[in-house]
Amino acid sequence: MCHQTVGLVARAAEEAGIPTLVMSVGRDITQAVRPPRAVFVDYPMGNETGRPGLVGEQRAIVRGAFAALARMTEPGAIVDLGMTLVAQAPDGRDWHEWVYTKDFRSLSMHTREG
């Protein structure tokens, strides 16, 4: 529900005259809530701006998001930064198959890179 809550906050801020920029890793939620400006990265919830200690990765996401502002000319824009995390879930599956399923709770991932 974090994605929904953030989207609602962003809409309210823009109604109040304050421009917003929203990160998203949950494209389906963002597409439904429709914040005015969003940036999508294919990362797990909890790593919206990267993995711990990987400053270069965090920088690429955050700077990429701000750079994307110039391309957002229509309300409801979702710019895809084209960044996909390559990592395994603790059970060896790709993280995409594991995130937000019943096996997901309180476990951390084993990453292949970085």
Binding site: M45, T49, R51, R105
Partner: peptide, 26 residues
Amino acid sequence: AHFGYPTADAASDPNCVFPLERLREM
């Protein structure tokens, strides 16, 4: 403190969900 996602990464480096240090650089 959050129930909805694994918080271990954010606990070890808040920049994973709260990129304050990256913004300071900018």
